[in-house]
Structure formats: C-alpha cells, structure tokens
Simulated assay, not measured.
Amino acid sequence: MYNVKLYNKISKVGLEELDAAKYTCAEDFEEYDAVLVRSAKLHDVQFPKNLKCIARAGAGVNNIPIDRCSEEGIVVFNTPGANANAVKELVVCALLLASRKVVQGANWVNSLAGTPDIGPAAEKGKATYAGPEIAGKKLGVIGLGAIGVKVANAAVGLDMEVWGYDPFLSVDGALSLSRSVKHVTDLDQIFANCDYITIHVPLNADTKHTISAEAIAKMKDGVRLINLARGELVDEQAVADALASGKIAAYVSDFASDCILAQKNAITLPHLGASTPESEDNCAKMAVYEITEYLEKGTIRNSVNFPNLKVPYEGGYRICLIHKNIPNMISSITHSVRCNIENMGNRSKGDYAYTIIDTAEQPTEENLNELRAIEGMISVRAL
C-alpha cells in the first residue's frame, strides 16, 4: 500500500484514478511515498526518507526544492500541457481586454448606478473606451511550448499576423504550429515589430526579467503586453514606468503587484490562467498517472529533475536506480547485480542518470545494499 500526501485541494476526478487497493490519500501523513501538490510551498518541508516522488498538478515547479529533491533521489513531475487550453483561452481574452478597454468601460458604467436615463448616459461616454481591433495586428509569442503553440494558432484564427520565438522549439511543437506563424530566432525581432506581445516560458535564471527596461525600449510605441506565465518574467517596475509614459499602451497580468495596480492602463487578474475545472481535472489526472507509473513500474515521464525513461514491464523483478551521471557507473552497476539481467534501460539528464534493470531472480536485500554502496548511487528501489 502506498501513502500519498495531498497538499492543496486536488481534483476528485484525478484522485479517483488511484486504485483504492494500492493507494491511500490524506493530508496529515507523516510517512508517505508520494506527494500531490498544486501551489503549496515545499521548500521548508522535511521529507520522510521513504518519499519517492512529487507530482505538481501544473507546469511551474518554483514551489518545490528541486535541487534538494535531486540529491535525495526524489523524482519531481509536472503536468505540461494539461492546462494549456485554459491558459490559451485566457490569453485570447487578455488580447481583447488589452485592446477594447472592456474592464474600464464596465467599471465606468457600474459607477453610473442611479443616474436618470442611465442608458443614454452610458452610451454618451463610450468614446472614452474605444480601442483597436486585433485582426491584422502583429502578435509576438515568446515561448512555443504547449501553451505558446495553442496561443499562436488561435491568434492566426483571429486573423492576427503571428510571430513566434523559441530557440528550443521541439519537434512536436513545430509539427503542431500553424504554417502561418513566422518563426524568428532573434527575440529583438519580436520586440521591434509586434503590436502585442505575450510570454509563455518557464521561470529560471535565464528567463527572469525577459521583459526588462532594455527590452521595452526596443518595443514599438503603444505596444500591448500580456503576462499570464510567471510574474518575475517581467520587471514590473520597468513595465509600470512604461505604462506611465505611454510606451506600453496596456498590460494584462495574472500577478498582482502594487506598482502595476497603480497604473490605469493595467489589468491585473488573480492568477486565473489555469483556474478552470477542466484544467484542474486534467492536471490531477496527469499527475496521478505519473506517480502510479513510477511507483508501480519505475517509469519516469515528465520529470523536471531526472531523465524520462520507460522500459516495457510485464511484472517480475525490477531494480530502479537513481545515480550521478559519472563515468563507469553502468559497468559498476552491472558488475554488482547478482542476478541474470533480462532487460535494461538507462538515460541521463545533466548531472543525474536513471537506470532500470529487470532480473530473472529476485534480488536479495544484501545485493540491493551492495548497489546502494556504489559511489555516486543516490537511491535503489526494487519492485
């Protein structure tokens, strides 16, 4: 029986995918094999020694101590693409909100409550809230992952001229991307040419403040900017200054900050990007699938800290080994396995590697301890 600790509220649709004969879920476990989490911060959590994996029901993993998990042999999963449609729809909404002053107009009409002849009075003020159409305008999409590709394709359907930037565009992404999207290799081309810019990249040391004061200076006057990805991808003070000067005509963000809230042409949402029941269900189902595949078969899929690896499993004896990616490790492992090896798979990712070995006989605890003693070995688990 595996114990799964729940942080935040995890969709019931996803939890129902767990076999009750194999899994128990609770929020108050002290000893647990897996974690399902959404936004709870785990950096200060002391994990039990038997924790094997953490699955984040969402794409970003900034709330999880990745480096510590890697050193402790804890596989961290995310759910890329599970919330892509929800975010795409909100980006389409944000494009319109940034253009047509819908929120400002609605707020103004609400302020007229009790005004005699409110209908004509409201219509008289509509010129103040006029805004441009998005058809025919250039949209720059920074990041062509699962969300960015959907956004780009949707914008093509709205008759926008779409420019996309992603130096790491995957084969699947390229195949899914509309041929109408102009793929550029220089981010400055997006800044210099696009009327609207939306960003969809993960947050890391290289992407923090992608939208900086320097980047904004390269943009067209009156550019309209959207950030529904991560708050720190944007230098918010630089955006606030550009809104105040008129360099940026409008900014729609999913991340609140005082300097942005002070700007009249900014619209801030309460992190609604993936807040749909469909998205929460999809993320939970994918997260549950990831942990069950790993716990029961050793399969790693959508890990952010260890390599993906799947070796066909028909039951029997399997040894799963997480280790450092160092020379002669595979020979050390195979030399130390005291069973006939029937099947084997190995993949590496940066400083770490993962090996699956199927054996004809059940490995003894003594043999597993011998494997654990190999220099550079992080964890050894027998199924």
Score class of each variant (00 low, 15 high):
T210K: 00
D195V: 01
A229I: 03
C194T: 09
E214W: 00
G222W: 08
I199S: 09
D188K: 13
Y196H: 10
V234S: 05
V201E: 07
S180K: 15
K218M: 07
V181Y: 05
I199N: 03
E214S: 15
H200G: 09
R179L: 08
T198V: 00
V184W: 01
K182H: 10
L225R: 10
T198W: 01
I211P: 00
V184S: 09
L177C: 08
I226T: 01
P202R: 11
A174T: 11
G173Y: 06
P202N: 09
S212D: 15
T198N: 07
L233Y: 03
S180Y: 14
K218A: 08
R230T: 10
T198S: 11
R230C: 11
D188I: 07
L233S: 11
K218Y: 01
G222Y: 04
G173L: 03
D172H: 11
E214Y: 01
A217T: 11
T185K: 13
D172Y: 12
A213C: 06
V223Q: 04
G173F: 02
L228W: 02
H209A: 13
Q189V: 13
T185A: 13
P202G: 04
G231S: 10
V201P: 04
L233I: 13
L225A: 04
Q189N: 13
S180P: 07
I211R: 02
E214C: 03
L175N: 15
V234C: 11
N204Q: 02
E232K: 15
D186P: 10
R230M: 08
S176N: 15
R179E: 14
I190K: 00
D188S: 13
G173D: 11
I226Q: 01
R230H: 09
G173E: 02
C194Y: 05
T210V: 08
I199W: 03
D186G: 01
R230N: 11
K208W: 00
D186M: 07
T185P: 10
L177A: 11
A192N: 14
V234Y: 04
V201T: 12
T198Q: 02
I197W: 02
L225Q: 03
L187F: 00
D186S: 12
V181G: 08
A174Q: 15
E232S: 15
H183F: 14
A217Q: 14
Q189S: 04
Y196W: 00
L187H: 02
V181F: 06
L228S: 05
V201W: 03
A205N: 15
D206R: 12
P202A: 10
L177I: 04
V223T: 09
D221G: 09
T198I: 04
Y196M: 05
